[in-house]
Amino acid sequence: MSIVDSFYQSIIVDQRYQYILEGLKNTLLIAFFALFLGLSLGILIALIRNSYKETKKHKILNILCTFYVTIIRGTPTVLQLMIIYYVIFKQVNISVIFVGVLSFGLNSAAYVSEIIRAGIESIDKGQKEAAHSLGLNYLQLMRYIILPQAIKNVLPALGNEFITLLKETSVAGYIGIIELVKASDIIASNTYDYFFPLIIVAIIYLILTLGLSKLLKLLERKMNLHADVVES
């Protein structure tokens, strides 16, 4: 079979590229919403754990958060996905894409929270004391002073986490979501030819992750803009 023939069979015949488009749509959908869920929940967890460390308030919440992070980081993503779908939502008729978003979002939140927490702790104590002595409360301190600086400092680590998240969504096929890898699998099981389905999907992932890191670089540069002024 010639390479042209193989391509034709894998992609064009029976509009098989439709699987790949469907897969791309679902991969992006899950990754995008999971990223936002992970980021918001991750920041919340980081704030709870940091506020406990600094003020000894919210002890129970802190224990819950610590427990949560330990469980998520200590078990495989694909297992969490399957537990959420086949155990927790077993009796519920629910969109499988939603389960994907929830599962990957909850997973990412644990990692994001650790990254943000490290970022918060990297800011010198002096600014916290100054804010305190000016009468700002903990939330105002975090919102206006610490988080903007912390997130800027950990942007490269957050970027890594986002890229990992995007690639991890490739296990969503385990609960029947047609994402990119599942799409290539469906095509190949029809044609018995894995070459193009796999290579094309790999290239798509590469383009997505490169695009994402480009985007993060731009964001980094934008956030550092005022620092660059000093040097010029």
């Binding site: 010198d124 600014q127 100054a130 804010a131 800027k152």
Partner: peptide, 23 residues
């Protein structure tokens, strides 16, 4: 009670004006 510190402790992510007006 206001306080001035040895290491200044200005907020690095805010401009001079924002530093003064935030609180």
């Amino acid at each position: 009670i206001g306080m001035v510190f040895q290491s200044f402790n200005l907020f690095s992510n805010l401009t001079v004006l924002e530093n003064i007006t935030l609180a």
